[in-house]
Simulated assay, not measured.
Amino acid sequence: MSFNVLNDAALNQLFRDARTVHAFKDTPVSDAVIHQLYDLLKWCPTAFNAQPARYVFLKTAEAKAKLIPALMPGNVPQVQSAAVTVIVAQDTRFHEHLPTQFPGYDAKPLFDANPAMTEATAARNSSMQGAYLILAARALGLDSGAMSGFNPQAVNEAFFADGRFKANFLINLGVADPAGVHPRGPRLAFDEAAQIL
């Protein structure tokens, strides 16, 4: 059986040559590219087609200034140099959209009755959607750097005061400054990380 495998250039861009970037060139990312990015990542799967991730794309100095107090000091230059910093958040009431987004059956009551399942589903699937965003950015020729070094409560207070959305993690986007690209770290071998049963 043959598979429709992407060519090596595409695989290199998505995986082998891509790096987590810590500094970016002064190259803007247009709103049109941000829309294109979302229009790619939105097709990736989530449980119940729940799509709990919510994205806030910070481009302006004013928007980033609201974020900077919540960052660990070492992460401030990364955000300042990035063309865009994305707050990947999770919608705590994502299940309100299930009647239109998951028409197979009425799944909303499952989440209405089970807050723990709702929270776990939102966290797991918004994390996956953030990873999809990174791959979509790479596919469009952008570089990225995901960050978890921030105070989520401070981000929530600054951007999501009504409490519905909760910050998950941050992603910086732009064009890499070579000075901010470190050598690739090692990876576990297959036998250390996986098994086939």
Rank of each mutant, 00 (worst) to 15 (best):
E62Y: 00
V84E: 05
D91A: 07
A61R: 13
Q129F: 00
G104W: 06
L37Y: 00
L71C: 05
S126N: 09
Y132M: 09
F150Y: 10
V56T: 14
Q101L: 15
A61N: 12
T92H: 10
A139H: 11
Y132H: 08
E96A: 14
D39K: 12
F150Q: 09
G130T: 03
V33Q: 14
V84Q: 07
T27N: 11
V29P: 01
Q80N: 13
S30H: 02
L133N: 03
F150W: 07
A61W: 01
F24M: 11
M72W: 04
F24L: 11
A70D: 06
H97S: 14
L142T: 02
V56S: 14
A146G: 08
A65Q: 15
A113G: 08
A47V: 13
N49I: 11
P99L: 05
V76I: 15
A123K: 15
N49W: 04
H97Y: 10
A120Y: 00
A18W: 02
A47H: 02
L135D: 00
D143R: 05
A70T: 05
Q153A: 15
V88G: 05
S126D: 07
P52I: 08
A146L: 13
A120F: 02
A70L: 13
A61T: 12
D143V: 01
P69M: 13
P69E: 10
N75G: 02
M128D: 03
A82M: 08
D143T: 01
S126G: 08
N49D: 06
A113V: 04
T20G: 09
A89Q: 12
A113I: 05
Y105I: 05
A122P: 01
F150D: 05
L142D: 01
L71A: 06
P45V: 10
